[in-house]
Amino acid sequence: MKQRIITAVVALAIFIPILYWGGWSLELAAAVLAVIGMSEIFIMRKRIIMSLDFLLASIGVLLVTLPDHMFAWLPQFITRLDLIYVIVVLLLLHTVASKNKTTYDDAGIATLSLFYIGTGFHNLVAVRNDAGLDTLLFAMIIVWLTDSGAYFVGRAFGKHKLWPAISPNKTWEGSVGGNVVALIFAAIYLQFFPQVYAFWPMMGIALFLSVIGSLGDLIESALKRYYGVKDSGKILPGHGGILDRFDSLLIVLPMLHLFGIV
């Protein structure tokens, strides 16, 4: 517990100022976090990170993560998606050059991961820099309070397992309790920091984000259980890896774009 608290204090001391400043500092932080997240996927799969396929996957996740203004130099007939497709083709060609030491499955997982991780961190930057700090905090508060509420309500009242094959400690009571706690605090937050839509539509979005955030947590749990690891990484002592800490946000933040908030 002591290690968890120390890590949390240090991480927040670094991360909170970056969130406050936004701009290039957050863009750089998101890029670094995305590459670390990709490395965690490779390490969980016991793949070598000092390899061509990791280099290509890292370039790919950066192409997805980096903000739109960094691609203003591209000719009009070339898009960001074109560059990402070139990376995918190079990953496929590597399966040939490596004589299937890097397989089609490896290329597929790298491609899925670069979109999963990159889209999440791209929207971390987009929400902060385009919609504002108050909107980013709205999403973060929902995620954090859903998780914390589920933990405490589950410990106190949890009896019915939510999805034991994936996450044996989660319960339906905890999950619903987390949603309720998140909604209560979202309602309070909206009184002080109104968002782009009226109160009740935003409350509906808050409920959706709370539920989808819980599913994001289960996605990461399924990933770790499949690869037989407890944590996605060890970069945050007592907390695990980057994907452990951002699992819900990687799913929640892109949803703000789909709702037209960003």
Rank of each mutant, 00 (worst) to 15 (best):
G22C: 05
D244G: 06
F138W: 15
L26T: 07
L62Y: 04
A206H: 10
S148E: 04
K99H: 12
P194F: 05
G240I: 01
F185E: 06
G120L: 10
L249P: 00
T119G: 00
R47A: 11
V180F: 12
L250N: 12
T111V: 12
G37R: 13
S98I: 01
Y189N: 10
P237W: 03
W24H: 03
L62N: 08
G149Y: 08
L256A: 04
A131S: 15
R155P: 01
P194E: 00
V96R: 10
I166A: 03
V252Q: 08
K2H: 12
T119P: 00
A156P: 02
A97F: 15
P75T: 08
R245D: 02
S39Q: 14
A34I: 03
F42W: 09
T111C: 09
L253W: 09
L112Y: 14
T119N: 07
L52H: 03
M140R: 09
I205F: 12
R4I: 00
V262I: 15
V10W: 04
D82G: 04
S25Y: 12
I78K: 14
G241Q: 03
T119I: 14
F208D: 00
M38G: 11
P237L: 01
Y226V: 02
F152P: 03
I117W: 07
K46Q: 12
V153L: 14
I141L: 15
T102W: 13
I78T: 09
D247N: 11
A186C: 06
S25V: 09
I41K: 15
Q191T: 05
R47S: 09
A198M: 02
V181I: 15
L183Y: 01
Q3E: 14
Y20I: 13
A150P: 10
T171L: 11
G228W: 03
S248I: 07
L112P: 05
I43G: 06
V64P: 09
L256V: 06
N179R: 00
F193Q: 01
I251P: 10
I188R: 10
L145V: 10
V143P: 01
G174D: 05
K101R: 10
F77G: 09
G238K: 05
A222N: 12
N129Y: 04
N100I: 00
A34M: 07
N179W: 14
F152N: 09
K161F: 05
R4E: 00
N179T: 10
F259W: 12
A139G: 15
L52Q: 08
L236Y: 11
K46A: 04
L92S: 09
R155D: 02
L218A: 05
I59S: 07
A29R: 11
D130M: 13
